[in-house]
Design a protein around this nucleic acid. Structure first.
Lengths: 206, 206
DNA sequence: AGGACAATACCAACCGGTTGGTATGTACGC
DNA sequence: GCGTACATACCAACCGGTTGGTATTGTCCT
């Protein structure tokens, strides 16, 4: 038997991440979560005051784990800010691998369902997206200054990259394939190259 | 031979469009739908074999009503294919008005929740998105030929516009405002202008 | 034209199972 | 011996779906 002490909360959070991404928040029952995590309902409501509280905690857990993933990613190695930004986007495209519900975004899925009915979850999801976008802003600002690009804010471009990714996930779910999602990220990369007059702008694969 | 006087069916479809956009598919109960439509459960299951069948019908109803809206929209008046495409995108940005759940996309919302659990709904949503994107392909193809643009397919750019819009809706839901969504569409318009060397590419507002 | 009658459109009451949530208990480290 | 971490048993409300009906409509026959 797996170690039981202290682990119920973590196992529930992991189960929530996997099951909610596959089936959505409303369609995921507390019983199902408990079954998948191998704990009882008593344990669930010991750690989370309600299903909504679990949703908030799942969004925060998502923020922590994904920000660790991106912090450790290799794209930070580039010296030039624009190269870092482009390498980030290519990293995002490479992340589109395996089953659809393995590479899609928990908070993007949850916020669609809860934006009107569960403000606490919605705000936690909004924070997660916003904070991740913020990690791109310094590099975009530096690239804009270095290449004298203007006409929009660095924040809006950072958020636009997240919009493209979220939209790409919807396309991937609709047609059960990463192909369209990857092509959408390619368009985003082409946009950034055109915007900053990046030399490789004309060399993208079809 | 379509049966006449199907008030209940039409009212249920309209209720489904409004409520599912606000709360999601799984969180919308059959009882709630019936209450909103002013019909009984018997009427519901007379017209739809199951809740899943209602979901499929709602996606098809969405396709019909939105394709009528876009067919009648003024952007078709432009003589140049690229101008038509750009006017379409500006039309989409203008559509971002009123409450969040009034301008977001039913099928984009539904496919997120049902892509694994209800293949029939997922496929109906995928068809809806794909068919709408298809209405843009001829103009994009003509614009690409006229301006000798290559390196990607017209289909992939058409689908990319839908990805950006779907992602913009997620941003709008997360922050309960159209602002970020509109800015994301602005980035998309700027991308298309850069791609086709459109004269106004440098004149976009911040 | 009008009566027979069947199909359609809709309704109220109900069903078994599941839902999120609770009350109460226990095992155990500090 | 007390707080934390769980487990068991249970609940009322609600879930999607079914029942057995009635009112309205369309169609065929004469």
């Amino acid at each position: 038997m797996p170690p039981k002490n202290q682990q119920a909360r973590a196992r529930l959070l992991e189960a929530a991440r996997d099951i909610i991404r596959a089936r959505g928040f409303a369609a995921t029952s507390v019983d199902e979560l408990c079954r998948a995590a191998g704990v009882t309902k008593g344990a669930f409501f010991h750690h989370f005051a309600s299903k909504e509280a679990l949703g908030v905690a799942a969004a925060e857990y998502w923020s922590e784990t994904t920000s660790a993933l991106f912090a450790a990613a290799p794209y930070h190695a580039h010296a030039d800010p624009l190269d870092r930004f482009l390498a980030y986007l290519e990293f995002r495209r490479e992340l589109l691998a395996g089953a659809v519900s393995q590479y899609t975004c928990l908070v993007g899925t949850m916020v669609q369902e809860t934006h009107e009915s569960a403000p606490a979850i919605r705000d936690a999801c909004a924070r997660s997206i916003h904070e991740h976008a913020l990690t791109l802003v310094d590099d975009i600002k530096a690239a804009m200054a270095a290449r004298r690009v203007h006409g929009f804010s660095a924040e809006s471009l950072a958020l636009h990259t997240q919009a493209v990714l979220q939209g790409a996930f919807i396309l991937a779910k609709a047609q059960q394939s990463r192909d369209l999602a990857a092509e959408s990220v390619d368009h985003l990369i082409r946009y950034v190259r055109l915007l900053f007059n990046h030399p490789a702008a004309e060399e993208l694969p079809a």
